[in-house]
Design a protein around this nucleic acid. Sequence first.
DNA 1: TCCTAATTGAAAATGATTTTCAGTTTCAAT
DNA 2: ATTGAAACTGAAAATCATTTTCAATTAGGA
Lengths: 158, 158
Amino acid sequence: MPCHHQDDAPLEIPALLKKYHLKVTRQREGILTALLAHHAPMTAEELYLSLKAAGENYGLSTVYRTLGSLEQCGVIEKAFLPGDTSQYYRFSQRGHRHHLICVGCRKTVSIDECPVEQFSVAVGEKNGFTVTGHSFEIFGLCPDCQALKKEKHDPQEK
Amino acid sequence: MPCHHQDDAPLEIPALLKKYHLKVTRQREGILTALLAHHAPMTAEELYLSLKAAGENYGLSTVYRTLGSLEQCGVIEKAFLPGDTSQYYRFSQRGHRHHLICVGCRKTVSIDECPVEQFSVAVGEKNGFTVTGHSFEIFGLCPDCQALKKEKHDPQEK
DNA sequence: TCCTAATTGAAAATGATTTTCAGTTTCAAT
DNA sequence: ATTGAAACTGAAAATCATTTTCAATTAGGA
């Protein structure tokens, strides 16, 4: 197979790295690709293990460092899940500030609207605060996880 | 000063502990009192240090354990602050699910309304999710911290 | 008062994340 | 293509928050 340039790549990871003056390394490409493919927030450890399972054995500290640099550039962002204190990372989605997150598998759906922007500023003003931001995430069980849960309770018998 | 029973105590901590079958100890009373007095979310370490400063030198593990038991009873709850991965605790406020939190000093104002309940359920349904909850917190600078910040930038000269 | 289970403190253990440092790699400039 | 400086990496050590262990103490009912 000849090595030709792919115009149709869904996201040019090398270009993205260059844009932020980060060197393009095998590790960074692998980490970003894995996170991109996962479609749900992941911890550094999860990324490390999934890469290892795929035969890409990078240092755990490299995973942490890469996530850290990418966060500083604003390419990815931290996410916190209810009842879980570990730090998850996901691609930051400009304009998509809010999400519907499955508490079972962490699958994430972006919500386009923001129903609280005006409300937040109003509440801030009423209390003399300068509002700098807000958090709003919806948690629930996705269809797949609902099915899984049902299976567990009624193991295919009446 | 005679030792008389205080009817006007703002919150009967011993009674609260007994209600949840927790023994009434000096440590637990001290920890709850300190958290109650602070009017803002605190970490275990902060509680430990503030108690120590007040001459009450309890083990850090006791602080952690006490916070853990009280959380299990639902007396207090965890809170997460933006850009900070440590676990904060605050009294749980039934019905006050949302807050306006100062990012400078963590002073907290409870918000009575919930402008996102219906919206959350609707978004969940649209995506086939069973909604189990949502998070919504507003962040900003309180009047005091705004003043402090201004001082820093213009150190009282023109 | 006495007894037992709950609680405590100190220290060790754990788990997540960060830092250190020597060796390697990228990439811009030759 | 080669080179060199700066950036990056991996492994191990360090750090930080939190939890657990365990022997000694304490609360509160009998």
